[in-house]
Computed example of a mutant assay.
Amino acid sequence: MFSVQALEEIKKLLHKDKNIVIVSHYNPDGDAIGSSLGLKHALRLLDIEATVIVPNDFPKFLKWMPEAKQILIADFKRKKVSEAIKNADVIFCLDFNTLSRIGFLGDWIGKAKATKILIDHHQMPDEFDYVYSDTSLPATCQMVYHFLETLNIATEISKESAECLYTGIMTDTGGFRFRSTSATTHRIIANLIEKGADPANISSNTWDNNSINRLQLMALVLGRIEVVRNGEVAILWLKREEMERFGFEKGATDGFVNYGLSIMGTKMSAFFMEDIQEDFIKISFRSKDNWDVNQFSRNYFNGGGHINAAGGRSELSIEDTLDRFKNLVEKENFLL
Results as ranks from 00 to 15, higher is better:
265 G>S: 00
205 N>G: 01
211 S>Q: 15
149 E>R: 07
243 M>H: 05
221 V>H: 13
234 A>D: 04
259 Y>Q: 05
249 E>F: 04
244 E>R: 11
256 F>D: 01
152 N>F: 13
188 I>D: 08
170 M>Q: 08
191 N>W: 05
171 T>A: 07
183 A>I: 06
194 E>T: 15
250 K>Y: 09
195 K>G: 01
260 G>L: 02
140 T>L: 07
261 L>Y: 06
235 I>S: 01
182 S>M: 08
263 I>Q: 10
187 R>S: 11
177 R>Y: 02
263 I>K: 11
254 D>T: 06
183 A>N: 08
178 F>P: 03
255 G>Y: 01
200 A>F: 14
160 E>D: 10
209 N>I: 09
194 E>L: 10
245 R>E: 12
239 K>Q: 09
191 N>Q: 14
222 L>Q: 14
254 D>Q: 12
224 R>G: 14
160 E>I: 02
167 T>I: 08
188 I>F: 04
234 A>F: 14
232 E>C: 00
222 L>E: 06
204 S>P: 00
174 G>T: 07
151 L>A: 10
223 G>M: 04
192 L>Y: 03
149 E>A: 09
161 S>T: 01
218 M>L: 13
175 G>Q: 06
163 E>R: 11
200 A>V: 10
220 L>K: 15
167 T>A: 11
245 R>H: 08
173 T>K: 07
239 K>G: 03
154 A>P: 00
151 L>P: 03
204 S>Y: 13
162 A>R: 00
259 Y>V: 07
189 I>M: 09
140 T>H: 10
260 G>E: 08
172 D>P: 05
180 S>I: 01
218 M>E: 02
232 E>H: 09
196 G>A: 11
164 C>G: 02
